[in-house]
Design a protein around this nucleic acid. Structure first.
Length: 887
RNA sequence: GGGCUGUUAGCUCAGUUGGUUCAGAGCAUCACGUCGACAACGUGAGGGUCGCUGGUUCGAGCCCGGCACAGCCCACCA
């Protein structure tokens, strides 16, 4: 078989993914095995996967594949979120490009366009998930607006309404003037920026030419002022009790009111009160029974109530008003001021506080169980301490959740109104009528058809009001409560998601889970960090620093992408994404590929001998590396299991990487490698192939394609790697492992000695070993001489003159060569080492002569120190002897 | 304003209940090397007072206090 020079991922990826899907390996049905359930955090249906998703999906796939290979019935549910605001904004934009105004369309016509859009672009993310190699059960793909899902959302709304946990009311909410919808508190992102504070003077009605000055950042809202408020203890303003002021430009007469809320030290100590456009003013207004004048329209332009600049955008109006205020001598001062502004998470526009009638969920009652689930440790958060406090704080201080959105794309709120505004909540119009008739019986006029006209609430529900049911309804746990699948798969095993949606989603899923399933939705939550670019900046479209996933996969291969993103992402830490690490992944692929090529070369050259090996010296030569690697493999497998259980996936990957590259390729293969065109012992060959298979299995969850490919190239297989069950980890023999480490150290030390003396690799040496433990070398002399290119190897009891001397622990190695030796560098090294050893020895001696140490330290620590002392003394003797042979 | 986290090699980060020569890994750097797995590579090497400062301890990268710097989250001060 001809193998290509390097691993070529493209064809391999496509072939294996198709095969896995065809074999239905990723499809899950309830059975006798324990379930391992993961629900994907559904990406926005019209979005593309960014690097954050890539990290997320990779982590999930690793966990799912590992579970699938460890006796679990793994079920990973894919899907997407309708993302009401984001998607509607995109569809509106698309229509605009076609010259269609959303307002000119009926609701039904708009939704038709939206679904077309969804059908067209919704598959992009699925394709990316597939290319990445994710082992999701495609038969279970769920969309948050699927029929059953839609019903579930409506059912939950009605249920919570009937329980009194949902209410409708007029409140100050966050308004997105671009999407023209309300937002929840969580959908507002605050940014610090420098603004200006304008000092304006308002004419008073007390004395002629008397003014009161206020400070504001938003002069365009003065037309909505309905009072000026000062602190009752502020003597400067005490004389204004009962006085009135006039709003500049429009001359409305407003009262001066007194309230502790005002900080006399801030600004001028006087506050303009605009109940329609500021949450604090709104509260003041409620308290003091002030009029509310709403001067801004839902699209952010000035309303007729503003009287001036009607129809102009509020920020344009601001500039013009400032100019006019200045001209008319109302603006007395401007100062720089740092402030925080709220922006809409979805559309990026500045959020307006606005009073409007919306639907809310009462959160306090549901927060309790959700809080306990985590505090009691039923749900474990990884990394724990970092997010536990955040989660707790939010739930303890949770505010009601505004769930209505003035959009069409989403689940339409099942509330029905008659012409007089009387309302009922029901699933269908017919049901609504029935309930309505019971609740509001017809007045009794004969023949009147009662309440024929009911119209449904035009608004839809917040996307997260559907997303919070995700772990339940993907198994139809809401629409068909207690069904077999829900019982089997719920609760999920682990939720993998970004820390940025801990409130939006995680906390609310726990609430929904406790409310509807009476148990937690998942046992572990693994928070991935944020993916940043090399310079530490957040990846974003506007910066153009977010690479395209499919481009990366084309360039490096899916396995390399998975490797690159995992190798640098410890749990919960942000990761600096750098294409270098993808290159490292690609190189790793090639390294494994080349190891395969080496092993394949041996396939046809196996020794025919029926005996394990005819030559007994060779038997010992090969039995050591076989034995050693088998133990090393088991050691690492157990380490990896531990690390993965702790969700330390990045470290587990590094451990496997080092096992394959260093222990397997650099040491083991070199140790068992036959000479040029020499046959390989068939026992060695068989073992090597089997180790290779085990390595591929261990790596498979991280790099599924290359491992599956190599697994099949190694030999004819009757199964596929992705379904191969892990054997139990065997106990390891620590002595053999230590012996292996010693051998590595001896080889490295001798090679270093050769290098330092400019010996070329080709130049053979004669090696003399001075040791008290000859027996420990018996099984490794063959390897040793091969690895350091020694054509003679013998033991000695005394120093050999004119040689390079190096030492490992108490053993000394004399390197004899034909070449003239320049011992000066060697001497310098030895002297340096001697000094270090002496310093070390005195430190140990000091420790040992400290009575309190000897008294208090644990016996094993004491023993270690004594051994350190003995070793150091022996080492010093060795160095001194060596020095004497040199000079 | 409140809270949380971090600071270890040039860069990105490990360091598992305080105790082996414990100061590590990968990348980057330097020297040498193309006999049949691999130059996208091999063999070696050099890099750090563990942010600063006190304390606890026989013993601190690890525990405690203070400080400096960086980042994140929360909060209605015009």
């Amino acid at each position: 078989m001809d193998l290509t020079k390097n691993f070529e991922p493209k064809a391999v990826e496509d072939r294996w993914y198709k095969h896995w899907v065809k074999q239905r390996y990723f499809n899950s049905k309830p059975d006798g095995r324990p379930a391992f359930t993961v629900v994907i955090p559904p990406p926005n249906v019209t979005g593309v996967l960014h690097m954050g998703h890539t990290l997320n999906e990779t982590v999930q796939d690793i966990l799912v594949r590992k579970a699938r290979m460890s006796g679990f019935n793994a079920c990973w549910v894919p899907g997407s979120d309708h993302a009401s605001i984001a998607t509607e904004a995109k569809v509106v934009g698309m229509l605009k490009e076609k010259g269609i105004d959303k307002n000119s369309l009926s609701r039904a016509a708009f939704l038709k366009y939206a679904f077309e859009w969804k059908d067209k672009y919704g598959s992009i993310i699925y394709n990316q998930i597939e290319r990445l190699g994710c082992s999701v059960d495609w038969d279970r793909t769920t969309f948050t607006m699927d029929d059953h899902y839609y019903k579930a959302v409506i059912k939950v709304f009605i249920d919570l309404y009937n329980k009194g946990l949902i209410y409708r009311g007029a409140r100050m909410i966050n308004w997105d003037s671009s999407a023209k919808t309300a937002l929840s508190d969580e959908e507002v992102e605050y940014k610090d920026l420098t603004g200006k504070l304008y000092h304006l003077r308002y004419k008073l009605d007390t004395v002629k030419e008397a003014y009161i000055s206020i400070a504001t950042q938003r002069p365009e809202t003065i037309m909505g002022d309905t009072a000026i408020c000062v602190n009752p203890n502020d003597e400067r303003y005490a004389h204004l009790k009962g006085a009135y002021a006039f709003v500049p430009l429009i001359n409305r007469r407003i009262p001066i009111i007194f309230d502790d809320y005002v900080d006399p030290a801030f600004g001028t100590g006087a506050l303009k009160v605009t109940p329609a456009h500021d949450i604090n003013d709104y509260n003041l207004g409620l308290k003091h029974n002030l009029e509310v004048v709403d001067t801004i329209n839902e699209d952010g332009t000035m309303s007729t109530a503003a009287q001036i600049y009607i129809g102009e955008d509020r920020f344009v109006a601001r500039k013009k008003i400032i100019k006019e205020l200045l001209e008319k001598n109302f603006l007395t001062r401007e100062e720089e001021y740092t402030t925080r502004l709220g922006y809409s998470q979805r559309t990026g526009v500045v959020v307006e506080p606005r009073i409007s009638t919306q639907w809310f969920v009462k959160m306090k009652e549901m927060a309790g169980p959700a809080l306990n689930a985590v505090v009691d440790g039923n749900i474990k958060i990884h990394p724990g301490d970092k997010f536990l406090a955040t989660y707790k704080y939010w739930l303890e201080n949770v505010k009601d959740w505004c769930i209505s959105r003035q959009l069409w794309w989403g689940q339409q709120i099942p509330a029905w109104y008659d012409a007089e505004g009387r309302m009922v909540v029901a699933e269908t119009e017919n049901e609504a009528k029935e309930i309505f008739n019971k609740q509001f019986p017809p007045t009794g006029q004969a023949g009147s058809i009662p309440n024929a006209q009911l119209s449904q609430d035009a608004d839809v529900l917040d996307t997260w009001f559907s997303a919070w049911l995700w772990p339940i309804e993907v198994f139809k746990g809401i629409t068909e409560p207690g069904n077999k699948e829900a019982n089997y798969y719920y609760p999920g095993s682990v939720l993998v998601t970004g820390q940025d949606i801990i409130f939006f989603w995680v906390a609310r899923m726990v609430m929904a889970g406790m409310e509807y399933e009476k148990q937690i939705p998942f046992k572990d939550v693994y928070f991935t960090g944020m993916v940043r670019d090399k310079l530490g900046r957040k990846m974003s479209k506007s910066l153009g620093n977010s690479p395209d996933l499919l481009d990366l996969i084309d360039k490096y291969g899916a396995d390399a992408v998975r490797f690159g993103i995992m190798v640098s992402s410890p749990a919960g830490n942000d990761l600096m994404f750098d294409e270098n690490s993808l290159e490292q992944g690609r190189n790793f692929n090639n390294k494994i590929w080349n190891a395969l090529k080496l092993v394949k070369m041996w396939e046809g050259r196996q020794a025919i001998s029926l005996e394990p090996l005819a030559d007994s010296s060779q038997l010992t030569a090969y039995s050591f590396p076989l034995d050693w690697f088998s133990n090393r493999l088991n050691e690492v497998r157990s380490e990896v299991d531990t690390l993965m259980k702790q969700f330390r996936l990045s470290e587990a990957l590094k451990t496997i990487y080092s096992l394959i590259w260093d222990d397997f390729c650099s040491w083991y293969l070199e140790w068992v490698k036959p000479g040029f065109e020499q046959p390989v012992d068939s026992a060695v060959y068989t073992k090597t192939v089997s180790y290779f298979e085990e390595l591929m299995q261990l790596l498979h969850p991280y790099m599924p394609f290359v491992t599956e490919e190599i697994y099949h190239l190694l030999k004819e297989q009757t199964d596929d790697l992705c379904m191969k069950q892990f054997a139990t980890v065997k106990a390891v023999d620590k002595k053999i492992l230590a012996h292996g480490e010693l051998l590595k150290q001896v080889i490295t030390t001798i090679r270093d000695g050769r290098n330092k003396n400019q010996l070329k690799p080709k130049e053979a040496i004669k090696l003399f070993i001075e040791t008290n433990a000859i027996e420990s070398y018996n099984s490794i002399v063959h390897i040793l001489s091969k690895q350091v290119n020694a054509n003679e190897l013998s033991f000695t009891k005394e120093a050999i003159a004119n040689t390079i001397v190096v030492a490992v622990e108490k053993d000394k190695f004399y390197i004899k060569t034909e070449k003239d030796l320049d011992t000066s560098t060697l001497k310098v090294d030895l002297l340096k080492d001697l000094e270090h050893q002496k310093g070390f020895l005195s430190a140990v001696e000091k420790k040992l002569s400290n009575e309190r140490f000897v008294q208090n330290a644990k016996p094993e620590v004491l023993a270690i120190e004594q051994k350190k002392k003995a070793d150091a003394e022996a080492r010093i003797r060795t160095i001194e002897e060596s020095l004497s042979t040199i000079s």
